[in-house]
């Protein structure tokens, strides 16, 4: 049973790492700012969620799990908000360095 749970954790973390790599590949291959934001927000959000899910088993206590969950939520919120602001500045063309 323990081995199965370990295996599940490893698979989740590997899947998470895959999506982080996919986000980076997107950043390198996609042609413009908007499409790159797509790759970063969506792939990284999923990658982080999977890695944290894989780590749940190794958390020392419940507070630690709550911390990971809260971090995931805050990172998603800040990531989505930041990408909206970056896209908005680029779209309106009034940013200082776009």
């Amino acid at each position: 049973m323990n081995i199965l749970l370990d295996l599940l954790s490893v698979l989740l973390i590997l899947a998470g790492a895959f999506f982080f790599i996919a986000g980076t590949v997107g950043l390198l291959r996609l042609p413009d700012l908007f499409t790159r934001l797509h790759a970063l927000t969506k792939a990284d959000n999923l990658g982080l969620g999977l890695i944290m899910l894989g780590c749940v088993r190794f958390a020392p206590d419940g507070l630690y799990i709550a911390k990971m969950l809260l971090l995931w939520l805050l990172i998603m919120a800040s990531g989505a908000t930041a990408s909206h602001l970056i896209a908005k500045r680029a779209l309106r063309g009034d940013g200082e360095d776009y």
Binding site: L37, T41, K42, M76, A80, H84, A87, K88, A90, L91
Partner: peptide, 11 residues
Amino acid sequence: SLLPGTLSADY
């Protein structure tokens, strides 16, 4: 922005 294929770019 977190859903498939869409990104909120301005409002």
